[in-house]
Computed example of a mutant assay.
Amino acid sequence: MRSPNQCLRNGETPPRIPSHHHQQHFHSTVAVQKLRRFNTLILVFRFASFCFCLTSTIFMATNTRGSNYPNWRDFEAFRFVLAANAIVALYSLAEIGASVWEIFRGTTVLPEIVQVWFDFGHDQAFAYLLLAADAAGTSLARTLGVSETCMDSNAFCMQADISIALGYAGFVFLGLSSLLAGFRVVCFMVLGSRFHI
């Protein structure tokens, strides 16, 4: 049986693949794996933000005990809390879809430069919106806590407090998402890619 070397002409040696080719392939594979883990972490944060904000919205929307009791619609700050949490829940749901798309397709829904700035800008804007709403809700809740409203309907005030607390939790996870989105922006500006090892 002829050996592989016998298939070559006298004096020739088998061609060797340059070692840098293996290194490039290895680094490329590692970068893809790290990018996937990074995107998965963002997905977890966005999912947590969605869950907390949706739950906050539900708690506030169902905070009514009848015509003779206080209603969340009667208080502007509570309406603000509900609206902000509902908006962030919808935004987080859309971002969850974009993250799942990116994880499985390996590419962004929008052009990369648009996507990184879209995520970062909207994360910042909605985080401030959510924080402002919850701060307003907290101020009202403290005022109501020493008023006859909470003495007559303690359950209403407790449910409002829970809704606001859930909103703060949603803000924390949206803030974490914003930090990671900011990291992607910096990587894109410096390296020309949304992530680099």
Rank of each mutant, 00 (worst) to 15 (best):
S99Y: 06
Q24Y: 13
L180I: 04
A141S: 13
F156D: 04
A169N: 06
F80I: 12
G167C: 07
M189N: 12
V30T: 11
D152M: 15
L110F: 13
L43H: 10
E76H: 14
V32L: 13
G167D: 04
F59L: 01
H22D: 08
L90V: 01
Q159D: 01
I162R: 08
V146H: 11
A98I: 03
H22K: 12
H21F: 08
F173T: 01
S139G: 02
N39V: 10
Y168M: 06
A127L: 13
H25T: 04
T13K: 14
F52D: 00
R9A: 11
A77W: 02
L180E: 09
G66N: 08
H196L: 05
V81S: 00
T29L: 15
V190L: 15
F156S: 05
C157P: 03
P14K: 13
L180D: 05
A135E: 12
F47Q: 05
S67A: 12
S3D: 04
A77R: 11
C157A: 01
W72C: 01
N68Y: 07
I164N: 02
R2L: 05
V32T: 06
S139R: 15
W101T: 06
L129I: 04
I103P: 02
N154W: 02
P15Y: 10
S147Q: 06
S177H: 05
A136F: 05
L54I: 00
M1T: 03
R9Q: 15
T29Y: 14
V186E: 15
D74F: 07
G145L: 10
C51V: 05
W101H: 14
S28G: 08
H27L: 08
S177D: 08
G106I: 03
L180Q: 15
Y168T: 03
A127C: 14
Q159S: 01
L180R: 14
S177W: 11
V186M: 09
